[in-house]
């Protein structure tokens, strides 16, 4: 029996416009890791410790990637590259989940991770070309008084659950809720993600990419040479990188 392949109706390349997006200027990034720390605080990330970190099980929703060019001693470091979930428009993690725990949000155009649905197959992480998903291999202990700094707006994940960057969806909802209670729309720059807020060099900008007046859209136009990582895979990422401007 012939299998009829249905080509996705998602528009490819520049025709695709998401909802929330991010612009990262790699020339501004100093690699200070403030975003990494801020993200961990905001999103209740666990501290996995030395042993598990040695196994490559460290949990970060954003990391600073460093690359070198050339061979020793003439090595040159390329600009620091903050890597986080690209919130792909056609994400490779989504179709492989057997439990529908990683689904595409139609309302916010984000890749969601529904923790209570996740059964821990880790298929999504293996299928992610950006390697940005992290798995809770254990119930990592938070000694007192560390539980006091947990963010009440974010779920505390348990063992056997996959997690990843949510574009600080709790902040999105908070801003939307505040705007709605005041009877207006969310204003650009009213809120931002934890990483963008913490960045001392303002290398990270967050906002609506479908609004041409927002700062992210304007930055993308000014630079004009933004790069989307692994775009050739057709994942339609919502994070744009600038380098060598």
């Amino acid at each position: 029996m012939a299998i009829e392949l249905k080509v996705s109706e998602v528009k490819m390349g520049e025709a695709y416009v998401g909802k929330w997006g991010m612009v990262i200027d790699q020339d501004m990034c100093t690699g200070c890791q403030a975003c990494v720390a801020a993200c961990a605080m905001e999103n209740n990330l666990s501290f996995v410790g030395e042993t598990d970190s040695g196994y490559g099980r460290s949990m970060h929703w954003i990391r600073i990637e460093r690359f070198w060019e050339g061979s020793y001693p003439e090595v040159k470091m390329t600009p620091n590259q903050p890597m986080l979930c690209q919130q792909c428009g056609a994400a490779t993690c989504e179709p492989v989940c057997p439990a529908f725990a990683t689904v595409h949000s139609q309302a916010e155009q984000l890749n969601l991770q529904v923790y209570n649905r996740c059964v821990g197959t880790r298929y999504c992480a293996n299928n992610c070309p950006y390697q940005v998903r992290s798995f809770n291999w254990r119930d990592y202990k938070r000694p007192e008084p560390l539980p006091n700094q947990l963010n009440p707006d974010v779920t505390v994940r348990r063992r056997g659950v996959m997690e990843k960057c949510t574009f600080c969806i709790q902040r999105i909802h908070k801003a939307q809720d505040k705007a709605k209670s005041e009877g207006r729309e969310v204003v650009d720059g009213e809120f931002t993600t934890a990483c963008a807020q913490a960045c001392p060099a303002s290398a990270i900008t967050f906002g609506r990419v479908d609004n041409p007046d927002s700062l992210v859209s304007q930055l993308a136009r000014v630079h004009g040479h933004g790069v989307k990582h692994l775009e050739e895979l057709g994942t339609l990422p919502n994070v744009t990188y600038f380098k060598g401007g």
Binding site: V103, S105, Q106, A107, E108, L110, L112, V114, Y115, N116, V154, T155, T166, I169, Q170, H173
Partner: peptide, 8 residues
């Protein structure tokens, strides 16, 4: 009915 409305 979006998952992300209540679960995050």
């Amino acid at each position: 009915t979006d998952c992300g409305t209540c679960h995050y």
